[in-house]
Design a protein around this nucleic acid. Structure first.
Length: 497
RNA sequence: GCCCCGUUAGCUCAUCUGGUAGAGCGCCGGACUUUUAAUCCGGUGGGGCGGGUUCGAGUCCCGCACGGGGCACCA
């Protein structure tokens, strides 16, 4: 780091580029250390949240002062006025409070020290509540302590930080500059908490299963690969928690869930981050219809937790439509009568639909039709039911519709938010599905499931019939907070170096 | 991986066909004892990186890096 005050030789003109701004602030910090032994304490006890202080004085009339004292702390966000009186805005995680500094109250020295602070500095304040003549609830500063110095200038105090790259790479600056950004991540925490609260309340047991796995599985995705030195073996970062959680159903936990990160080595987009948060929950003695109701309740609870007031109606029972009917509605192709790849390829080209048909299987094309022509239109929450078996190696065959499995995906806001099945609990059938995946892998499908013998053996112990659901938490947050990019709702999204 | 767009001061943005790069905020100095993006006076700071064309490049050309949007892949 260059640009200390000493670097500027005598007689050189003063400059105010970034190095000079930092040097200026560093010099102020040094002066503070000299002038005020109480600066930069190790702690500042007894701080009240700002929002609570403001709320307590709503009743004050303009210009009315009190002798009721409060202690607050936070970051200096703005400064107005000078001479004998100054106004400073201090911000904490709950809100913003105006400070009224007066020379006659603080005395010459302290007043100068306070008004020469930089925006961005962290201060602790003791003062009496008042409402200013202009109507702003404020604290008259009686005493203050500088808690920490900001050596670097903060983003523009009213323009804020709008460069998206800086907002994502330097999220702390985004949070300093943007109250909506702070609120968003607090809302995210409330959503996560509501999800846990719902599942806990229904008797689900929260568990933690390996992130580092000798064999990955549970989702059609390419994994990240890593290496354990002492064990001398390749490990994979999990792509899903599914298989371990179902082993816990075998173990008798009956209702289990895990909320945590999954990792998929695929592209990034406005809807995909390589690491993302998923909650998966499994319920013994339930089928995919039962867990659909669970998802409705869970999302309703999450929406309530953040006071969702958007256009999506989570209160009603969600629409349910079959996979085949949904595609028929959107494209006019009836998959029930177009049952092989060549016929489907022909139907797609006849309608001039923009779908990749080269080297594609029937199932892949069907899935493409859904994601391209159905999904974007599903704004109100909708379950799409009963998928082709080839797309779903862990779902149980449909009880009445041959060739299909009991699976649904839930969509809202034009986006997939959850995926669920009546779980396949027949060990022999599961073994056959793995064989089919192995064949797909040998055919070059990099997302095919590796054969997991331990999982099959677990099923051979007997797994209760069960319904299982995976919910993308990031997408749920996007949905409930109205953000259109996953990078907006992940604190530190994946970025190129 | 492909296509389009962007990158100028600490922050937010300008800069017509190539001709000495501007503003607001911030910061520094000064005035002001109820301001709300406080105000007023003075000062301060800059062309992503690497090549090329040209008397002269922020501006034109090529390459690179990073970002945004879209496509492909996926959740």
């Amino acid at each position: 780091m260059s640009g200390t005050p000493q670097d500027a030789g005598p007689g050189e003109p003063a400059k105010h580029g970034l190095p000079e701004l930092i040097a200026e602030r560093r010099a102020k910090a040094a002066r503070l250390r000299e002038a005020d032994a109480e600066s930069f304490p190790y702690a500042f006890a007894g701080v009240e949240p700002i929002a609570g202080v403001v709320e307590a004085y709503e009743h004050l009339a303009d210009g009315e002062e009190t002798e009721e004292h409060h202690r607050v702390a936070g970051r200096l966000a703005a400064r107005r006025g000078s001479g004998g009186a100054a106004f400073l805005d201090v911000v904490d995680r709950t809100g913003k409070l105006q400070l009224h500094a007066r020379r006659d109250v603080l005395g010459e020295e302290a007043f100068e020290r306070l008004t020469s602070l930089d925006i961005g500095d962290l201060i602790g304040v003791d003062g009496a509540a008042l409402r200013s003549k202009r109507g702003e609830i404020s604290l008259r500063v009686d005493r203050f302590q500088v808690l920490a110095k900001a050596l670097r200038p903060p983003p523009d105090k009213h323009g804020g930080l709008s460069d998206v790259e800086t907002r994502y790479r330097r999220r702390e600056l985004d949070l300093i500059a943007s109250e909506p950004a702070r609120r968003l991540f607090i809302d995210r925490a409330k959503i996560v908490s509501a999800v846990r609260g719902y599942l806990d309340g229904q008797g689900f047991v929260e568990v933690e299963t390996p992130v580092l796995q000798p064999l990955y599985g549970g989702a059609l995705a390419r994994p990240f690969t890593t290496h354990h030195n002492a064990l001398e073996r390749t490990l994979y970062l999990r792509v899903a928690t599914e298989l371990y959680l179902k082993r816990l159903l075998v173990g008798g936990l009956e209702r289990v869930y895990e909320l945590g990160k999954d990792f998929r080595n695929e592209g990034v987009s406005t809807k995909h981050n390589p690491e993302f948060t998923m909650v998966e929950f499994y319920e013994a003695y339930a089928d995919y219809g039962d867990v659909a109701v669970r998802l409705e309740e869970l999302v309703r609870a999450a929406a309530a937790a953040v006071g969702y007031a958007g256009e999506i109606d989570f209160a009603r029972t969600w629409r349910r439509v079959s996979f085949v009917a949904a595609i028929d509605e959107a494209t006019g192709i009836d998959l029930a009568s177009v049952r092989d790849a060549d016929a489907l390829r022909k139907a797609i080209s006849e309608r001039e639909l923009q779908i990749r048909t080269q080297d594609a299987t029937w199932a892949q094309m069907a899935d493409d039709l859904l994601s391209k022509f159905v999904e974007p239109g599903l704004v109100q929450p909708t379950f799409v039911l009963d998928y082709p078996v080839a797309l779903s190696p862990f779902a149980r065959e449909h009880r009445s519709l041959p060739g299909l499995v009991e699976r649904w995906e839930a969509f809202a806001g034009g986006m997939e938010i959850a995926n669920a099945f009546s779980e396949l609990n027949d060990a022999d059938a599961q073994r056959e599905r793995f064989e089919a995946q192995r064949a797909a892998a040998e055919g070059g499908d990099e997302e095919a499931q590796p054969y997991d013998e331990l999982f099959v053996q677990a099923l051979e112990q007997g797994m209760p019939p069960a319904g299982g659901v995976g919910v993308g938490i990031d997408r749920l947050v996007m949905l409930l907070t109205g953000r259109d990019s996953i990078r907006e709702v992940v604190l530190f999204p994946a970025m190129r170096d």
